[in-house]
């Protein structure tokens, strides 16, 4: 009985802590949802209102008239899905080389590879831009996709996971006559589903939120991604907050769907890959 009571008490403490965390995380989302239907002059009143007396549901129509929002959603989906797919292919192949092949200078090469993680993207922005411009890829999908087709973080993540696959398994496959392609495709990849799922979510979400690159390589509204399109609602002096929040609600939806679909793989990938936290 006493033990039971103690257990309930710790449960309650845990519950309260988690509840605080939940509110802290969901608060901004609640504000975003609430603001998306508020009239413009009610956004910053104090005390803040959660539910407005005059819901402006037409914001969800207005956003499609004010900016080419539908088109930007499609652009974002094309760009993000392509980058995700490209990263899965490129990173897993590179990771296979670093984890499962033995060749001279492998560790040194891997270190150099990892060093790319330390280079801030701001440094490579201008050279990348010049390169893409000289290729004539301004305002094109390939200009937005290809610079992100490889990721040193993704390679690192997958390599760490591939290292945990028992060597015996790979050797057995080789004894049975498998070449590298087969081992990669039939043994390593299927066993690494959690890590691949985690990388897919990382890649998709970070690209969905990417602002700087799509901003500078697109000049035409019909090529803009959703982050760039939303930023056009923010002016130098005036910002239509309800409309901006309406757009944000609609922009968050795809990320939420991807996360729910990949959730289980995501968490397994984080804990299983020996890569907690990052």
């Amino acid at each position: 009985m006493a033990r039971h009571a103690r257990k309930t008490r710790t449960d309650w403490v845990l519950f309260v802590v988690l509840l605080v965390g939940t509110f802290a995380t969901c608060g901004p989302f609640a504000w975003m949802l609430a603001t998306s239907i508020k009239p413009g002059n009610e956004v910053f009143v104090f005390p803040p209102t959660l539910l407005t007396g005059q819901p402006q549901l037409n914001n969800f129509m207005r956003i499609f008239d004010t900016i080419p929002f539908g088109r930007s959603l499609v652009n974002s989906l094309i760009v993000c899905l392509s980058i995700t797919l490209a990263q899965l292919v490129v990173c897993s192949m590179a990771a296979y080389a670093f984890a499962c092949l033995t060749f001279r200078g492998r560790e040194a090469l891997f270190l150099v590879y990892l060093a790319a993680l330390m280079v801030p993207s701001q440094v490579t922005l201008i050279p990348n831009f010049i390169l893409v411009r000289n290729l004539g890829w301004i305002d094109t999908y390939q200009g937005m996709i290809l610079p992100f087709a490889f990721s040193s973080f993704g390679t690192f993540l997958l390599r760490q996971y591939f290292m945990t696959i028992p060597r015996e398994l790979l050797e057995a496959a080789r004894l049975d006559g498998c070449k590298h392609w087969r081992i990669y495709l039939w043994i390593v990849l299927p066993l690494s589903r959690p890590a691949l799922g985690a990388l897919a979510i990382f890649a998709f979400v970070s690209q969905w939120n990417n602002f700087l690159w799509p901003l500078i390589v697109t000049t035409r509204p019909e090529m803009q991604t959703v982050t760039v399109a939303l930023s056009t609602l923010q002016g130098q002096y005036n910002t239509d907050w309800p409309l901006l929040m309406t757009g944000s609600v609609l922009a968050v939806a795809p990320v939420l769907i991807v996360f729910i679909l990949g959730n289980r793989a995501f968490i397994a990938g984080l804990t299983g890959g020996g890569f907690g936290g990052r």
């Binding site: 922005l125 201008i126 831009f129 010049i130 411009r133 602002f211 700087l212 901003l215 500078i216 000049t219 035409r220 509204p221 760039v228 930023s231 056009t232 609602l233 923010q234 002016g235 130098q236």
Partner: peptide
């Protein structure tokens, strides 16, 4: 005339990159 519109927040980032590339 081809128009390039950007929001205030991103306009100069893009312009600076373009001008640095002599474009």
């Amino acid at each position: 005339i081809q128009v390039q519109h950007a929001p205030w927040s991103g306009y100069f980032t893009r312009l600076d990159a373009q001008l640095a590339a002599h474009a």
